[in-house]
Simulated assay, not measured.
Amino acid sequence: MKTNLHYIIVSIALIFTCFLTSANNVTKNKEKFVVVLDAGHGGGDSGNLGSGYKESEIALKIVLTVGKKLEENDDIKVIYTRKEDKFVTLRGRAKIANDAGADLFVSIHCNAHNSSAHGTETFVLGLHANQRNFEIAKKENEVIFLEADYEKHYEGFDPNSPESMIGITLMQEEYLEQSIRLARLVEDSFKDKRKRNSRGVKQAGFWVLHNTYMPSILIETGFLTYKKEGAYLNSRNGQTKMSSSIIEAILAYKKNLDQNVGENIYEEMPSVVSTETKQKALLYDNITFKVQISAGPRDLEPKSYNFNGLSDISKEKVGNLYKYYHGNTSDLNEIRRLEANAKQKGYPTSFVVAFKDGEQINLSEALKTSAN
Rank of each mutant, 00 (worst) to 15 (best):
I79L: 10
Y80Q: 06
Y80K: 04
T81S: 04
T81C: 06
R82G: 07
K83W: 04
K83S: 15
D85M: 01
D85F: 06
F87C: 02
V88Q: 08
T89N: 11
T89E: 14
L90N: 04
L90I: 13
R91I: 07
R91T: 09
G92L: 00
R93L: 05
A94K: 07
A94F: 14
A94P: 11
K95A: 12
K95M: 03
N98W: 02
D99Q: 11
A100N: 08
A100Y: 12
A100M: 08
D103Q: 05
D103N: 13
F105K: 05
F105E: 01
F105M: 09
V106H: 02
S107G: 02
I108H: 03
I108Q: 03
H109I: 10
C110R: 09
C110M: 15
A112D: 01
S115M: 07
S116H: 11
A117W: 11
A117R: 05
H118L: 00
G119P: 06
T120S: 12
F123Y: 13
F123H: 05
V124P: 04
V124Y: 06
H128C: 15
H128M: 14
A129E: 07
Q131I: 05
N133W: 03
N133A: 15
E135H: 14
E135Y: 12
I136R: 07
A137S: 10
K138V: 13
K138W: 09
K138T: 13
K139L: 14
K139M: 14
E140V: 14
N141A: 10
N141G: 12
N141L: 08
E142I: 06
E142R: 15
L146Q: 14
E147S: 03
E147P: 00
E151K: 09
K152R: 07
H153T: 13
H153G: 10
H153Q: 06
Y154S: 06
Y154H: 10
E155Y: 14
E155P: 04
F157E: 05
P159I: 10
P159F: 09
N160Y: 10
N160S: 12
P162D: 10
P162G: 04
E163P: 03
S164Y: 09
M165I: 01
G167T: 10
G167D: 04
I168A: 00
M171C: 07
Q172I: 10
E173S: 12
L176N: 13
L176K: 15
L176R: 14
Q178S: 12
Q178H: 03
I180V: 15
L182D: 05
L182V: 07
A183S: 12
R184P: 00
L185P: 00
V186E: 06
V186G: 02
E187W: 09
D188A: 03
D188K: 05
D188W: 01
F190H: 04
F190T: 03
K191S: 13
K191G: 03
K191R: 13
R194T: 02
R196G: 01
N197M: 14
N197P: 01
R199S: 07
R199H: 03
R199W: 03
R199I: 08
G200D: 13
G200I: 12
G200Q: 08
V201Y: 02
Q203S: 09
Q203D: 04
A204E: 11
G205Y: 13
F206E: 07
W207F: 15
W207R: 11
V208F: 11
